[in-house]
Simulated assay, not measured.
Amino acid sequence: MFGGVSNRTLVGLAVVAAAGGLVVFGPGGGSADAAAACAGRPVKTVGFSTGELRLYKGNGYACAVTAAKNPGARRQMSVAIQARGSAPAGDSGSYTRMAGPVTVHSGNRCVRATGAIAGSAVETGWVC
C-alpha cells in the first residue's frame, strides 16, 4: 500500500500513463506524425505513386520513414537508411500507415534511404 492506494492500482495507473504516451508520441500517418516520429530537420522527401520517403538529420543522427499516401488497408511497407561506411538499418512489415522510423548515427557522413510500399519503391541517393 502507498498512502491508501494498493500496488495493483499503482501498476494500473502506470500502464494507462504508458499507453497514453504511446498514443501521443507513437508513429502514425501524415506529415505531422512522421515529423514527430523522427527527430531533426527534414532534408529530403521523395514522393512516389503509393507514398513518400522522408529523410531527417540532426545532432549527428539521421532518421527515415516511409509514409503511405492513403493510409488504411494493411500492405507491405519498408524503409532502410544507411550512413556512408556503415551497415544499413531498416524496418519492414505489413502496416497501415508507415514503416519506421529508423534512426542511425551518421555524424557528419552522408546518408541514403530507400522506401517501398506494395511493390513501388524509391530512394534518396546520397544526401550530405
Score class of each variant (00 low, 15 high):
1 M>H: 12
2 F>M: 14
3 G>E: 08
4 G>T: 06
5 V>C: 11
6 S>F: 08
6 S>A: 05
6 S>R: 00
7 N>T: 15
7 N>A: 04
8 R>L: 06
9 T>N: 11
10 L>N: 06
11 V>N: 09
11 V>I: 02
12 G>V: 15
13 L>D: 15
13 L>Q: 13
15 V>A: 12
16 V>Y: 12
16 V>I: 11
17 A>D: 15
17 A>L: 14
17 A>T: 15
18 A>F: 14
19 A>K: 03
20 G>E: 06
20 G>K: 00
20 G>T: 14
21 G>Y: 02
21 G>P: 14
21 G>L: 09
23 V>E: 00
24 V>R: 10
25 F>N: 07
26 G>V: 12
26 G>F: 04
27 P>V: 01
28 G>T: 13
29 G>H: 06
31 S>L: 14
31 S>G: 15
32 A>R: 13
32 A>E: 14
33 D>E: 00
33 D>A: 10
33 D>I: 09
39 A>S: 13
39 A>F: 07
41 R>L: 13
41 R>E: 04
42 P>C: 09
42 P>T: 06
43 V>F: 09
44 K>G: 01
45 T>P: 02
45 T>V: 12
46 V>N: 11
47 G>V: 03
48 F>D: 09
48 F>V: 05
48 F>A: 12
51 G>W: 05
52 E>H: 07
52 E>T: 07
52 E>K: 11
53 L>I: 05
53 L>W: 07
54 R>M: 05
56 Y>E: 06
56 Y>V: 04
57 K>C: 03
58 G>C: 02
58 G>L: 07
61 Y>A: 07
61 Y>C: 08
62 A>Y: 03
62 A>E: 00
65 V>K: 01
67 A>E: 05
68 A>P: 03
69 K>P: 11
70 N>W: 14
70 N>S: 08
71 P>R: 15
71 P>G: 09
72 G>P: 00
73 A>T: 04
74 R>L: 12
74 R>M: 01
75 R>Y: 14
76 Q>M: 07
76 Q>N: 08
77 M>L: 09
77 M>Y: 14
77 M>N: 06
77 M>V: 02
77 M>C: 13
78 S>D: 15
79 V>K: 01
79 V>T: 04
79 V>W: 03
80 A>K: 07
81 I>S: 03
81 I>K: 08
81 I>L: 04
82 Q>F: 15
83 A>L: 08
84 R>P: 00
85 G>I: 11
85 G>Y: 02
86 S>K: 09
87 A>Q: 13
87 A>C: 05
87 A>M: 10
87 A>F: 07
89 A>K: 12
91 D>A: 00
92 S>H: 06
92 S>M: 15
93 G>N: 03
95 Y>G: 10
95 Y>D: 12
96 T>L: 03
96 T>H: 14
96 T>W: 01
97 R>N: 07
97 R>F: 04
98 M>G: 13
100 G>A: 04
100 G>Q: 11
101 P>N: 15
101 P>M: 14
102 V>L: 00
103 T>L: 07
105 H>E: 12
105 H>W: 10
107 G>I: 04
110 C>Q: 13
112 R>S: 02
116 A>D: 09
117 I>W: 01
117 I>S: 01
117 I>G: 03
117 I>V: 06
119 G>F: 04
120 S>K: 08
123 E>L: 01
123 E>D: 08
123 E>F: 02
123 E>W: 03
124 T>Y: 00
124 T>S: 13
124 T>R: 01
126 W>S: 09
